[in-house]
Write a protein that binds this DNA or RNA. Sequence first.
DNA 1: ATGCATTTGAGATTCATTCTCAATAAAGTT
DNA 2: AACTTTATTGAGAATGAATCTCAAATGCAT
Lengths: 142, 142
Amino acid sequence: MKQEKVLYQDFLQSKNLKLTKPRLIIMEAVLENHDHFNVDDLYEQIKMKHKDVSRATIYRTIPLLIESGLVKQSLRCESKDIYEHTYGHENHLHFICTNCGKILESSFNEVEKLINQLAKNENFKISEYNLGASGLCKDCKK
Amino acid sequence: MKQEKVLYQDFLQSKNLKLTKPRLIIMEAVLENHDHFNVDDLYEQIKMKHKDVSRATIYRTIPLLIESGLVKQSLRCESKDIYEHTYGHENHLHFICTNCGKILESSFNEVEKLINQLAKNENFKISEYNLGASGLCKDCKK
DNA sequence: ATGCATTTGAGATTCATTCTCAATAAAGTT
DNA sequence: AACTTTATTGAGAATGAATCTCAAATGCAT
């Protein structure tokens, strides 16, 4: 998406950060992901395309992607931090299968309304939702 | 609470695990916590009472406490796993302040109902909820 | 008490993440 | 286009939470 690139560029500019090749490569890799990924996923994905960026730079760039609103941190998996590409992707609930690791996503609107109300009662300003449940998916239930 | 101790003992017995002194000490420390704690918190808490258990044993014992239903894993904080004493404590939502680190808890019933319905639609069997949002608490909003 | 299997403690190990620092690249200036 | 300044990068070292190892200690049935 063009729009995301612009958003990212504007963000970098507003912070006096340079639009470097590694930062672009990493952003592009993220845009290709329409679900969850971790640092190693990005690293492999970038290598696959014969580009090259160090892991250190990926680790350094993720906070920028988060601040610019393209990405958010998600649940952890296999003791690694995982992230999701959020811009242009609706918020959703995660149902994580503890048996096979699959992540189902479910709609969010009603839950969001309810949570917003609760937050209002507490006078709390939500900036990010983190909603899910773990258990067994339909295949593993049997 | 007596009941939790019994539950724990029964669990250990059912798995042919021994009821050792360290396992009791750790359980007692957990029972004293009515909110969130990490491994170091438990370690310090135990030392304070002039008892002694190694960190390794705490790490080994937590999965037992989780399996027996006294404790559940919660969000992470400062890159440490954190846990909460759940037995006899209602489920709740967490509102985590990204500025001061405070954790507010809010009621849960309606959200639970809604999520249960969504899980049912996906044919997913929930074993544990993980519900929260991060943002700014009323003091940090200003 | 005795014997056997389990558990413990201490320290070593692992592995994701962060840090360090010399080398490199971006972007503005002439 | 070459020069300057300052931010950024890559490689490897460092950190630190969590896990593992193994000899010594403990629980528990007999």
